[in-house]
């Protein structure tokens, strides 16, 4: 036993934990499949990628730092309106629109993070909910700027990188969304494997203990909240650019609730959870689009109850447990 422990190399052990796995590579390669297998569904695929990006942004605060938000659509909508307004008023270059969406959302996220970091539990839920509703109502009333309930019309995008037109079949849209998703994912993957990522998990696991080991939790929370808002803003901007319109719905409670459902269904705190959730949720919604919305939400409701009761860590959590049991049996 003593010899085993002296041979143990902690750094190599932690390194092995962060290594890319075959499953991950397979996942990203399979994201290219729609180009060949489902060329008629590239518009849907681009929306899935955007939703996955939005879910990824929520995962950073919910899955890693344990901050429950019922108003995350606020940042999604801010990004969407920023990018949409920029393009509507004569500057249709996509990448600068993405940057603007990220910056505006990050700024608002940074300012609100001072409030967010002070609260937890019910008060936090109420504040995020209230903030989301407030922004939704603001956009609704500011008809001159946002078009109110009619949505923002007249968004015209220039070709991506000056070369790729946004086409009707969503080819450019999906390629664009997928590349952005992958780039942001690389950043978040690095972040979650960093010392900062470890501190975030510490906050999720035990917020009370963190100050007692000298950790400035409030500063950590402000930082991740701002970053999460920026990513949500990018996702919103992507939606505005690829659909060339912004509806009030981008700011709605419904969207905040949907992304929560998506993340929890897939499994929070593992980056890929939101992706799995987004694929299932969006494909199902596309299949059942003939259904009246009420029945769709009956399904969502049953799903939520079932996940909470039987699958507390989502689909990926369940799969991980299954895999662990399998390995346990094998050895």
């Amino acid at each position: 036993m003593a010899s085993a422990s002296s041979a143990f190399a902690p750094q190599a052990y932690l390194q092995a934990q962060t290594r890319w796995r075959a499953v991950e590579l397979a996942f990203w390669l399979s994201c290219l499949l729609p180009f060949v297998l489902f060329p008629n569904y590239l518009v849907l695929a681009s929306q899935i990628a955007i939703t996955a990006l939005f879910a990824l942004s929520l995962d950073l605060i919910l899955g890693y730092a344990g901050i429950v938000s019922l108003g995350h659509a606020a940042f999604f909508g801010l990004g969407a309106y920023s990018a949409g307004l920029l393009a509507k008023h004569g500057w249709g270059e996509p990448l600068s629109g993405l940057v603007l969406g990220a910056v505006v959302a990050a700024l608002v996220g940074y300012v609100s993070s001072f409030v967010i970091a002070r609260f937890r539990h019910l008060t936090l839920i109420m504040i995020t909910l209230g903030f989301g509703l407030l922004l939704h109502e603001l956009a609704n009333k500011a008809h001159w700027l946002t078009g109110g309930a009619d949505g923002l019309q007249g968004v015209r995008m220039w070709p991506l990188l000056g070369a790729f037109m946004f086409d009707l079949w969503g080819f450019t849209a999906y390629a664009y969304a997928l590349i952005v998703l992958f780039a942001v994912f690389l950043v978040t993957r690095r972040l979650t494997n960093s010392p900062f990522g470890l501190s975030l998990r510490g906050i999720r696991e035990n917020p009370v203990r963190m100050p007692a080991i000298g950790a400035p939790s409030v500063a950590h929370i402000r930082k991740i909240y701002t970053l999460s808002a920026a990513i949500a803003g990018i996702a919103g901007a992507l939606l505005a650019q690829t659909t060339e319109t912004v509806s009030l719905e981008t700011l709605s409670f419904q969207r905040s609730a949907d992304v929560l459902v998506i993340l929890v269904l897939g499994g929070a705190g593992r980056l890929y959870g939101g992706f799995v959730g987004a694929i299932i949720f969006m494909v199902a919604r596309d299949r059942f689009s003939g259904l009246t919305p009420q029945y769709w939400y009956f399904g969502i409701g049953v799903l939520l109850v079932a996940v909470v009761m039987f699958l507390p860590n989502g689909i990926l959590g369940g799969l991980a447990r299954l895999a662990a049991a399998w390995r346990g049996k094998a050895t």
Binding site: S194, I213, H220, K223
Partner: peptide, 24 residues
Amino acid sequence: ALEAVTLAVCERRGIAPAWWRALP
């Protein structure tokens, strides 16, 4: 246990805010 103690060490050494380099 390793992660938890490493977390505390990182906080003391002031490297906890670093998010662009992997922990290893």
